[in-house]
Write a protein that binds this DNA or RNA. Structure first.
Length: 377
RNA sequence: GGCGAGGUAGCGAAGCGGUCAAACGCAGCAGACUGUAAAUCUGUCGCCCUAGCGGCUUCGAAGGUUCGAGUCCUUCCCUCGCCA
């Protein structure tokens, strides 16, 4: 585990829900927290200023994508990812493990690592646990994720087992590599953030026994926090909730739990109820660009003809710039006209909705009202 | 007035005797999206319904040839271009 600035303190609990603060080399994050996804060093459609105004305290970015373009060497020469993208708050970088899943048709995998055929120029790119750690060291994110294998759903138990066991072995290698990077100079690798933390990732598909084994063995390696990966890949929600519940039960209570890639607003509430502290998801940003708005009254597809002459804001309970200023009628027009403002305004709103939801979750936990919030929000 | 090109579903545009209610694109309508190869993708898109290799009415108009016509013939109407 890190002896750097990384720290996590739980200040309140309500049932299994926890409210706390996660400290990193670039500042603190109130948890439970939602991390907007900025894969390539930017959250699509909005500025950093917008993100801060909406209350974002931490961004997620991506090892694989930044390695391919503009390259982690270039970013290291710029002084690291924070300086390069001019974001002063915490950043967590995914390892490229999700690309093992999403780019399954363009990669081969073996014990050594994953060989990708770049989607940009077709070149062959090898990502190993060590390489992913090196790249993230050069990026200098506040939290580095270990390289894992995210398997699809459904998957046979034996396949899930082999994959999970390999992910544990990879976690060990990633841990050793980060320790080496911390212990002294490593040829060809620049450490742009000495205070970088490292999270291990639990896998095991939808099989409780595999999840428990994965959690136990990953915790035994010793990380700053633990993520639950490989969920929300197509399995029913109640299965996901069940796996989350069984997994958090095995994870240390004094360290953050991060549910990767999740989810819908309801997923977030249900996961917090099961002891999760961190989330990231592309839903608010991607769906915004595709015309779907998350509101206090459910999802709303701004493209629908029923909004053509609707003068109300997207969500009357929302205080974001979009909702304070524009009508559904205008938002629909912008979207159908292909104006890029449509993507921006929709993204602004969806992120505000997500960040507000987490804010309300934190308040509810703090005041011991989480269970009623969960039921009646 | 002469010569030439052309009139196909909301628009553009294929089609050159049967498998055409009619390719394809756009527009329209609806849906999907969960550690971002996504401002993307899917379905639908003449009318009717019990929604089916179902019924009905279409391809400028009217006649005709043919077992069968959006596709061939005749006449008419209308657009566009060039020449008078």
């Amino acid at each position: 585990m890190s002896d750097g600035p990384f720290d996590f303190r739980v200040s309140h609990t309500d049932g299994r829900a926890r409210r706390g603060v996660m400290r990193t080399a670039h500042g603190g994050v109130e948890t439970p927290a939602f991390m907007p996804v900025g894969t390539q060093g930017a959250v699509k459609g909005v500025t950093h200023r917008d993100l801060e105004a909406a209350g974002a305290e931490i961004l997620l970015s991506n090892t694989y994508h930044l390695h391919l373009r503009p390259g982690d060497d270039l970013i290291a020469r710029r002084g690291g990812l924070h300086r390069f993208i001019a974001w002063t708050k915490p950043i967590l970088t995914d390892s490229g493990g999700y690309q093992v899943f999403s780019l399954a048709s363009r990669r081969t995998i073996d014990e050594h690592g994953v060989r990708f055929q770049s989607h940009l120029d077709g070149s062959s790119r090898l990502l190993t646990p060590e390489r992913a750690a090196d790249i993230q060291s050069q990026l200098g994110s506040d939290v580095a994720m270990t390289l894992d294998e995210c398997v699809a759903y459904p998957v046979a138990e034996e396949i899930a087992r082999q994959s999970m066991e390999r992910t544990v072995r990879w976690a060990r290698r990633a841990r050793d590599r980060q320790s080496a990077l911390r212990a002294g100079p490593v040829e060809g690798v620049v450490v742009t953030n000495p205070g970088q933390a490292q999270f291990g990732i639990v896998q095991g598909g939808v099989f409780p026994a595999l999840r428990e084994q994965s959690a136990r063995e990953t915790v035994a390696i010793g990380f700053d926090a633990y993520a639950i990966g490989g969920l929300s890949v197509g399995e029913p929600a109640d299965i996901m909730y069940d796996i989350v519940e069984r997994t958090t039960a095995v994870l240390p209570v004094h360290q953050p739990r991060y549910l990767m890639g999740v989810g819908t607003p309801e997923d977030l509430v249900e996961a917090v109820a099961r002891g999760v502290d961190l989330f990231d998801c592309v839903l608010p940003t991607r769906n915004a660009r595709n015309g779907q708005l998350f509101t206090s009254e459910g999802r709303l597809n701004i493209k629908n003809a029923q909004f053509a002459e609707d003068d109300r804001p997207a969500d009357s309970a929302c205080g974001c710039y979009t909702c304070r200023t524009f009508s559904r009628s205008y938002l629909r027009h912008l979207f159908l006209a292909g104006e890029m403002n449509a993507a921006t305004l929709n993204t602004l709103h969806n992120l505000q909705f997500y960040l507000d939801t987490l804010r309300r979750i934190r308040e509810a936990i703090e005041f011991g009202r989480f269970e009623s919030f969960r039921l009646y929000r």
